[in-house]
Design a protein around this nucleic acid. Structure first.
Lengths: 146, 146
DNA sequence: ATCTAAATCAGGAACGCTTCCTGAAAGGCC
DNA sequence: GGCCTTTCAGGAAGCGTTCCTGATTTAGAT
């Protein structure tokens, strides 16, 4: 048996703060798009010339696990990241794949419906609206002439 | 310039019906889980010994584009397939990843909120509830003693 | 400021899932 | 049955992600 070390209370995990992670988070927050890991790397490699793609992946993973950023499963199967940690929903363009944040609340009715249907409680509800964004929507003239 | 062929009206696309595609669809429908392409292949390769994984991918893609089955972007980043084409939503267990179909309707209020917030119309709304499924939920005795 | 141990990094190799390519087989239509 | 097209199996190629290595950076103590 091993003796329990009387170490001082320590946080879940000791983390160093690094320039790389700080820049990744900052850029993710000032960007309103929802970039992939590769896009994040591409955007930052100018100011951190030897930032490696692996580092980007690792740090995105860390930030997600800390709940500082969010993941958005995107259309093409890839994962995208979202610098906005506050719960919100998305409008996703079926044509160009653009993702737009929606700051609307899920109606409490939904939680009730779930409880009725399954007796379960949702810790989180995610709502994705699919449609055509403003740029991809064909102009009215071509649509509703009849 | 080329002369326009006076071909008879033909459906969107002419498709052969094949045993492979039929079995993939049938199995997807009788399965209540939401399998990946690999799992689908694994399940069918017994009765169709030289079914190739590429064929599974191609046919799943065809069935999705026809709207006969649905895609469910799953937690691990992979894509899962859903033999149930009728629109429905999902309850996803945060612990074990199980996906359960919910046959509830999105409240019309949601479409209104979207219109108010962005002036867009949703062709489809996806709602994912995240929580703990029955098997993963800790028993009441351990929870609410206080 | 210097030193030390642990965390993190860059770079590249390895891995797994998905797509693409080819010749062969089966389906649909006459 | 005969012909043309679609679909198939199998394998190679492609792409995104994870893993591995030794080198570097960080935080905290001296």
């Amino acid at each position: 048996m091993s003796v329990v070390k009387s170490a001082p209370l320590e946080p879940a995990k000791r983390r160093h703060q690094t320039r790389q992670r700080a820049r990744i988070l900052a850029w993710l927050r000032e960007t309103h798009s929802h970039p992939t890991a590769a896009q994040t790397h591409e955007a930052l490699v100018r100011e951190l010339p030897n930032l490696s793609l692996g580092t980007v992946y690792r740090n995105l993973e860390v930030l997600v696990s800390e709940g500082v950023i969010g993941e958005v499963p995107s259309a093409g199967g890839g994962v995208r990241y979202d610098g906005n940690a506050k719960p919100h929903h998305h409008f996703i363009c079926e044509s160009c794949g653009a993702i737009d944040d929606l700051h609307i609340q899920a109606p409490p009715e939904l939680a009730r419906k779930l409880r009725r249907a399954r007796g379960r409680t949702a810790r989180r509800i995610r709502i994705d609206f699919y449609g055509l964004c403003e740029s991809c929507e064909p102009p009215r003239l071509l649509r509703g002439l009849g």
